[in-house]
Design a protein around this nucleic acid. Sequence first.
DNA 1: TCTGAGCATATTGTATGATTATATAGATCG
DNA 2: CGATCTATATAATCATACAATATGCTCAGA
Lengths: 237, 237
Amino acid sequence: MRVASARNLHGHVTQQLGVRIVSGQLQPGEVLPREETLAEQMQVSRTALREAMRVLSAKGLVEARPKVGTRVREERYWHQLDADVLAWRCASMPTTDFVQKLGQMREVFEPAAAAFAAHRRDAAQLKQLETAYRAMEAARNTDEWAQADLQFHEAVLVATNNELMISLFSVVETALGSFFVESARKSGDFKYSLPYHQQVCEAIRQRQPELARDAMQKMIVDSRANMSGKRRTRKSA
Amino acid sequence: MRVASARNLHGHVTQQLGVRIVSGQLQPGEVLPREETLAEQMQVSRTALREAMRVLSAKGLVEARPKVGTRVREERYWHQLDADVLAWRCASMPTTDFVQKLGQMREVFEPAAAAFAAHRRDAAQLKQLETAYRAMEAARNTDEWAQADLQFHEAVLVATNNELMISLFSVVETALGSFFVESARKSGDFKYSLPYHQQVCEAIRQRQPELARDAMQKMIVDSRANMSGKRRTRKSA
DNA sequence: TCTGAGCATATTGTATGATTATATAGATCG
DNA sequence: CGATCTATATAATCATACAATATGCTCAGA
């Protein structure tokens, strides 16, 4: 998932202001300094500042009106599923509370996605899935594992043939990504969840939605327990 | 959910270009005319055009690079869960296929949301829910019903205390909204789903997640059958 | 002929100043 | 006291100039 590139100047400005808003440094309701002043403060032209504001406005973070100024909107208007908003939030408040909310999202739609995938997958999508699975089997270290794992889950989502779910996965997974690798690193045996993946893969191959759903469900519950520090149950088949 | 207002000039431009891209009139890979030319074609200044481009770029629809120009990105990069992208899509391709995908999303996360709500709701949130339910009971026509229905489902989502789910609901529901009222209008007895709502409400009140999940699930399945034209089964309690 | 460095060029990126539209608050009139 | 009109601050739009940056071409050298 591409995130607001810092390559351009307005990208920098967008990011800076975005973080300041999402982190709470700029409170909702607060009106920002007028364009000219703020541009001067940030050492950029009004053009760059305005383009940044336009983006923040599109993300629901601010609202600009003539005469009154630009004010920070309340949280309920923020586009919480926007990749940038999510990233800024992860950067500024890495509270376990927020990670749990992301985990809840996964827990909700990944098992459902596995079921849909078992319904609708085509041959090419199954092949992608099996390739990812074999890469997980072959992984020699946590990095290889994490990469293959991500591809596996992405393959499941792609096989749903529902681009809305793919997009949701992409957003949530990117936000959770850093925690996954950390989790894998903490775990002594990083391949402990391989049997679950095998079951999911097999169920999708045989077009058995309920089996796929259950296997995915168990995998996530176990993964969650592992992330929260609890010792996993060793499985070998 | 606020959508790109057409109040501002760049809002108009954003919308026009957005629709042209999402509808396929502008194909992925295609490079747009250079800023100066395009601005002239659309009878706006380069400034307004650029601010629109910046927004479209933030939504993943286009990518601009010096010397090469601005090109339409492939669909997999589009932010499919963006409210505007979704709205443009609904406007340009009202195919049943896409409506089904939206319905799948609902089917996945609304029952889960009901279960979470039963877990985590506080007193105020329950009150909101019950208020919405009574409004549904009291509805005298399809418009009142549709409004109360929306408030009911929103109250369930709010009670999850997970702003990511709230946002997802807000986006999906807005896109589906027009189809709901149409569905209610087509149905002779628009209150046929009231018993399901009662069950959901009661389960959340009693903090019984699984009951809430099941009731919501049944409601959605039934609603879906109704929308696809099949005659509903008359229920009275 | 092939290869790579460097230069020319087209396009977006940034900056600045001026003008217009708009919403708020205050003044004025009934 | 209330409604309407006016003044004004701010964002919105426009026009123009200049800077940065990729791309592709040219041309020297092997």
